[in-house]
């Protein structure tokens, strides 16, 4: 089975979303909760989500530490650098995410841009929400 707990980091408190979520949390809807999910409701907990970063950070450090226990014999010399994958991964990820800002600026358009109309499942499903 999946050996890593999927990331559930802190939710960024988006200003417009706040009243809505506050309302939801103020009157928690318990009806819709799946029985199998009840033991895991803590995952949605604000604190847990905030604290998730520490768990991941710690795990990351552990694996970087493991690099020092052996000499990597990869195809390229830089692979042997300690923590190479971690640094590469961090930088790559950050780059990808941050590029989102300018990219959105250049290519973002209103949803109705092509005039095709909305397309999320107008006809389908039993949207009982």
């Amino acid at each position: 089975m999946a050996n890593s707990k999927p990331p559930k980091p802190k939710r960024k408190p988006a200003a417009p979303a706040k009243p809505k979520s506050a309302k939801t949390e103020a009157a928690p809807v318990t009806d819709g909760i799946h029985p199998a999910a009840r033991p895991f409701l803590w995952v949605g907990n604000h604190g847990v989500q905030r604290g998730f970063i520490w768990l991941v950070g710690a795990l990351m450090l552990v694996f970087i530490g493991l690099d020092y226990t052996f000499n990597r014999h990869g195809h390229f010399s830089w692979e042997a650098a300690k923590g190479f994958y971690a640094i590469f991964g961090f930088l790559a990820f950050t780059f990808v995410v941050l590029m989102g800002w300018p990219l959105r600026k250049w290519t973002g358009r209103p949803e109705t841009y092509y005039g095709d109309g909305p397309y999320d499942g107008a006809d389908e499903g039993e949207h009982d929400v």
Partner: peptide, 28 residues
């Protein structure tokens, strides 16, 4: 290492608010 560092970066970026929020829009 790669995966955890990337997840860490994600957590960090979300935490400091640099993660681009989801917005309804068409991307060209």
């Amino acid at each position: 290492q790669l995966l955890l560092a990337a997840i860490f970066a994600f957590a960090l970026l979300v935490r400091i608010g640099w993660y681009p929020p989801e917005i309804r829009m068409t991307i060209l």
